[in-house]
Design a protein around this nucleic acid. Sequence first.
DNA 1: CTGAATTTTCAGTAATTACTGAAAATTGTA
DNA 2: TACAATTTTCAGTAATTACTGAAAATTCAG
Lengths: 180, 180
Amino acid sequence: MIITPMQQSLISHFGEMGSRWGLNRTLGQMYALIVLTEEPLNADQISDALLISRSNVSMGIKELKSWNLIKLHHIPGDRKEYFSAPKDIWEIARTLIIERRKRELDPTLSTFRDALLQDPANEADKYTQQRVQDMHDLMEMVTIWSTELQNMSSDKLSTLLKLGSGVGKILDAKEKFLKK
Amino acid sequence: MIITPMQQSLISHFGEMGSRWGLNRTLGQMYALIVLTEEPLNADQISDALLISRSNVSMGIKELKSWNLIKLHHIPGDRKEYFSAPKDIWEIARTLIIERRKRELDPTLSTFRDALLQDPANEADKYTQQRVQDMHDLMEMVTIWSTELQNMSSDKLSTLLKLGSGVGKILDAKEKFLKK
DNA sequence: CTGAATTTTCAGTAATTACTGAAAATTGTA
DNA sequence: TACAATTTTCAGTAATTACTGAAAATTCAG
């Protein structure tokens, strides 16, 4: 498992960004390596390539599995387990949306709902509830969107994203459409 | 500065979630307190309410300022600076989108571009570049979207989000629209 | 300009998170 | 079933990140 300079710089970058996400440096590096390599890799290869301990790889793999970000492979006659990333980048993106929603949105929505069910003890609570209501409504809409994206095929997702700067126009198109 | 139990539980939750984001616990708590309180607060009040040092508040404020998440106020005859959050939740959301893009997407896009400009040294690099190209294209589209959202008024943003589960239909509407 | 009020900085320390090596558990083949 | 290959777990430690108090810097009223 030899890493080219090009790969090395991308892996380093993912390491730095990894910590800016919910992940950590090692996890970012591991996933970069897996994504950028065509052939599935086993844990020893990852350990060698990134100069991290075998046990660290094991924990990283476990985490990546919990994010549904890797596919498992078996090579006949080889007892080792091999790992790869989906070849379709949209699939990876979709998975990230789903998992981040689970981790970042869902628990918060549930906390918001709890707060909204309580009786406000005073004026401060009334104001607090107003704000929570706003945040709740927004987050719920984002959740609905992400669910929609989750069920969208890669090519439809691609079409949607490519609309890009045309989002505003689409809204107008939609109005026309609805008025008929 | 007395915190109600309802506020306390929301603040705690934001603290926990804060670390799941790029922020940290204290920053999450500080922002929760500011968002949930109607009146602007000064640094001492925040320090008292959250039981953290004055200097920690100072660093937190600095960070929140760098995220453009707080508004500054001055009360005549009082030299202290007071902080509040925008009352429009959409404004906060918009700011978050912009800032996260700056921090999470832009540097990565730039690293991708660098890699794509290099000459592939071998087959591994060729494959790596393919994957980088895919990721680049996706991220660029997300960036365009986020720029679009950034320039969208709160009510248009709201309209867009409310489409929610109708996104698929809109795409169809768009096709009809374009075919004319 | 002076000095009290306020904010910011920063070195030291505390708390948290990440990583390792050794040992335990699991897997699969003979 | 026995055992070698492989993976996972976990206690200890290293590295990183967050927090504090004291001191420095800034602000502004008189």
